[in-house]
Computed example of a mutant assay.
Amino acid sequence: MNIDLGGRTALVTGSTQGIGLAIAAGLARAGARVAVNGRTPDRVESAVAELRAAGGDVLGVSADVTTDAGVDRLLAELPAVDILVNNLGIFEAVPAREITDTQWRTYFEVNVLTSARLLRAYLPGMVDRGWGRALQIASDSAIVIPEEMIHYGVSKTALLALSRGFAKDVAGTGVTVNSVIAGPTHTAGVEDFVYQLVDPALPWDLAQREFMRAHRPQSLIQRLIEPDEIANMVVYLSSPFASATTGGALRVDGGYVDSILP
């Protein structure tokens, strides 16, 4: 499938590393002009340099999109996009009865409200132009709530509802809104998370296998997913080929969620 996103501008939040960086790279390879976003200028510049070295048409926007001021700065530099990928998210293992009110609020603010804020900012322009793609990077934890971080799982469940609701809001406009349910994925942050749950003395290959065996045994591929595999789905959903897919929650979870649907 030859996906051509030439002439389209994409924003990927939280894209200086991991899944976000892989998504930015995938969209750039498909011809989109891609805005890399992060809070730290040095990290944004490093990611931009990496993607430009690979031939991408890339710009960097340093802004904390979890705040109103950060979104204002983002909109001043990037007032319109054709493709919005709400990738930014936080996670951490905390025993259920030890999660504080402050942690609950923080996870809702970062993982849910940030996406709502950017959808509210960018969807009107997409609707006016009659074309657009808005994607939220959710998680298998939205469906299979993990006992070690239920605050994260609940926030990702809310993200699925957010996507479905905004898809209804833009019905019939040529704009689509979807969620991507990412399964356990190999990133630097996940390596740290894995070592919170298994013996930190284990080499990575053994630690990964032990983590999947003990904490994610439902996985049908029995390994962590690579970020490029998530990016492939995002690039497809960002393309004209996905024009009839909206309001959906599409899985790239390695078969982790034990369900036929979604």
Rank of each mutant, 00 (worst) to 15 (best):
L135N: 02
K156T: 01
T173E: 05
E191S: 14
L162Q: 03
G183H: 07
V175F: 02
I143N: 01
D205G: 09
A142F: 04
T187F: 08
R213P: 01
A201N: 13
T187A: 07
H186I: 10
P203A: 13
T185R: 05
L160M: 09
T157W: 06
G165T: 11
V170G: 00
R213Q: 14
T176L: 05
L160Y: 02
F211D: 02
L162A: 02
G174C: 09
V177G: 00
G174T: 08
P203C: 13
I150D: 06
L206F: 11
P146I: 12
K156A: 04
A182M: 08
K168E: 12
V194F: 06
A134E: 07
L160P: 00
G183M: 07
S139K: 08
D140S: 14
K156I: 03
T185A: 09
L135R: 03
I137M: 11
D199R: 12
L160R: 03
P146N: 11
E147H: 12
G174K: 11
S163H: 00
A188Q: 15
I181C: 05
P184S: 15
I150T: 13
I145N: 06
V154Y: 03
S163R: 01
L160A: 02
T187M: 10
V175T: 06
M149V: 04
K156G: 00
A167T: 05
K156Y: 05
A161H: 13
E191I: 14
W204K: 14
G189L: 11
M149E: 08
D140F: 12
H186R: 15
E147L: 12
K168T: 10
E147Y: 12
W204H: 12
L159D: 00
I181A: 02
I143T: 05
S179A: 15
I150V: 15
N178K: 08
P203E: 15
Q196P: 01
I137E: 04
V144I: 12
A142E: 01
E191H: 14
Y152K: 03
R133G: 04
I145S: 07
D199H: 10
T173V: 06
G172T: 06
A201C: 11
V170I: 07
L197P: 00
I145A: 10
D199E: 11
A171E: 11
R213C: 09
A158I: 03
G153Q: 03
A182T: 06
F211R: 10
M149N: 05
T157P: 00
K156M: 08
T176R: 09
A171P: 00
V170Q: 01
V170F: 00
I145F: 11
D192I: 13
N178Y: 02
S163K: 01
G165N: 13
A167E: 03
R209D: 12
